Computed example of a mutant assay.
Amino acid sequence: MPDGVNNWACKPAPDQNPVVLIHGTFSTTMYSYGALGPSLANESLCVYAMDFGEAKAGDWFKGVGPVDESAQRIADFVISVKTATGRDKVTLVGHSQGGLIGFYYLKMLAGAKHVDRFVALAPSVNGTSIAKTPDRKLVEYCLACADQHPKSALMQRLQEGPITVPGVQYSIVVTKNDLVVLPIENQFVREPGVQNIYIQDLFPDKKVSHSGMLYDRESLGLITRLVKGEPVQPGAQQVQAN
């Protein structure tokens, strides 16, 4: 785990809840949050994460298992974090598939009663066009890749009715240079109350990639403010819900 992550003796400040990080496909907590985890901990936040979704024990690559199964593991982990910290709610942060898992957990697994704020980073919430098939049975290794096809059964279940649920503050951060979750604009959820932000609306010359946003100083600063519930930089042009 990155420095500062999974300090089970940490006590959240009165105005902050513990933070749970959810990594993406073919990733780990260290790979996805090697910078953000310590950055949040340095802000005196209690930060927690787990690696999930390995095809078999000992695999370096994580996040390849079925999205619904990974979401259930996150649901169980959130309960552990709440128990350890004595708090009623957590703040979720999910990158790429981790963003999809967050949306799925909140809506399909009644996660909203455990979460106050969700910051989704380049989420595959509407799938990605680079996924080859929506059929898990045609995939030998990365079942999560099939789940992230725009026409997968899991995606269809998630998109029946509104994706968001009441009681959660949603923010989505996207880079215009993404080459993984495509089309890029499909990373946004255009529903009332969702704060959709392009990094380039705050930093016009920024050319961070899908994963590069996790290691860029200004992007990390933006993400940190959202995680803490602080307003973003004044003057940012945000995509409004339809």
Rank of each mutant, 00 (worst) to 15 (best):
M1D: 06
P2G: 01
G4P: 02
V20I: 10
I22D: 00
H23S: 09
G24L: 06
S27H: 07
M30A: 15
G34M: 08
A41D: 14
N42D: 15
S44M: 07
C46A: 03
V47Y: 02
Y48N: 00
A49E: 02
D51S: 03
E54D: 13
K62S: 10
P66L: 12
P66I: 03
S70D: 15
S70E: 15
S70A: 15
R73P: 01
R73N: 14
R73L: 14
V78T: 14
S80A: 10
S80G: 12
V81G: 03
V81N: 00
K82P: 06
R87A: 09
D88K: 11
D88P: 10
H95K: 05
H95V: 03
Q97M: 12
Q97K: 07
G98Q: 12
Y104C: 02
G111N: 14
H114N: 15
H114W: 13
H114D: 15
H114K: 13
H114R: 08
D116Y: 02
F118P: 00
F118M: 08
F118L: 07
V119S: 05
L121P: 06
L121T: 01
L121N: 02
S124Y: 11
T128M: 08
A131T: 06
P134M: 14
R136G: 10
L138Q: 15
V139P: 12
Y141L: 13
L143Q: 14
A144G: 04
H149E: 04
H149S: 07
A153W: 04
Q156F: 13
G161W: 03
P162Y: 05
P166C: 00
G167P: 11
Y170S: 05
S171P: 10
S171T: 09
V173W: 06
K176W: 12
D178V: 03
P183A: 02
E185V: 05
E185I: 12
N186P: 01
P192A: 12
N196M: 10
N196E: 01
Y198T: 00
Y198A: 03
Y198R: 07
I199S: 05
I199R: 07
Q200C: 01
D201P: 06
F203K: 15
K206G: 02
K206W: 04
H210I: 09
S211F: 11
M213G: 09
L214P: 06
R217M: 05
R217E: 14
G221C: 05
I223K: 01
I223C: 08
T224W: 05
L226V: 07
K228R: 15
E230T: 01
Q238S: 10
A241M: 06
N242M: 11
